[in-house]
Amino acid sequence: MSRRIVCLRHGQTLWNVEHRFQGHTDIPLDETGVAQAARSASLLAALRPTKIVSSDLSRAHDTALALGRVTGLPVTVDKELRERGGGEWEGLTSDVMAARWPAEYAAFEPPGGETEVEVATRVSAAILRWVEEIDDDGLLVVVSHGAALRLGMLSVLGLPRELWHTLGGLGNCSWSLLKQGRKGWRLGEHNAGTLPEPVSSDDKPEFQDDGTR
């Protein structure tokens, strides 16, 4: 047996629906998000997780608590699992960001926010730190955010920066599974949990789909 990591994105929020950059802003789950969290909890509980760690932002923490209630496990909070900091973009829609900062939006580098490399380094370090606390056959569930999880997983998997575009985004309350092998971590499952659905997150536009394109 080897250690496994489930990377679970939080449930839907109103800002997801409105396509607003959330970043570090603490936006709660909406009614749909609460239902998504309950559904994912019932499915993931069957995997018998041994530890649950969550971002401190309420949309992720409340999603994690739903799993904690089903499994009886406590939820440990780690602010290093927060979403990518959006700087001046937080609270704005993609149309406004593109209109006000066309060059920055094309590069998807939020003014005053975090770079992709900074987020990948921060989140992967947190994931790898927590996985060291579980047994060799344990399952760690990390509950976080769309861009944070995608970038963190890319770093854990050791993919070079020029290949970061090859991993798609995560839908609300969908998850990816990382497995530890003799040669390191590998991706066992990605964006699982539902049939394919539109993705709206704080990630790059190419990793989103609002259903209109």
Rank of each mutant, 00 (worst) to 15 (best):
A35D: 08
S40D: 02
S40V: 15
A41I: 10
L44Y: 07
L44D: 00
A46R: 15
A46Q: 15
P49F: 09
T50N: 10
T50V: 03
I52M: 11
S55H: 01
S55Q: 00
L57S: 03
S58R: 15
R59Y: 04
D62V: 13
A64Y: 08
L67W: 07
G68Y: 10
R69E: 13
V70C: 12
P74T: 01
V75D: 00
V75M: 08
V77L: 10
E80K: 13
E83Q: 01
E83C: 01
G85K: 12
G85E: 01
G85T: 00
G86A: 11
G86E: 08
G91M: 04
G91T: 05
D95W: 03
M97Y: 08
R100Q: 15
W101D: 00
A103C: 05
Y105M: 11
A106T: 12
P110N: 10
G112V: 11
G112D: 03
G112I: 04
E116Y: 13
V117N: 07
T121D: 14
A126D: 07
I127F: 04
L128F: 03
W130R: 14
E133R: 14
D135I: 00
D136Q: 15
D137A: 13
G138V: 12
L140C: 07
V142Y: 08
V142T: 09
V143H: 06
V156P: 03
L159Y: 13
L159I: 05
L159F: 13
L159R: 01
P160A: 00
R161T: 11
L167F: 05
G168Q: 10
L170K: 00
L170E: 02
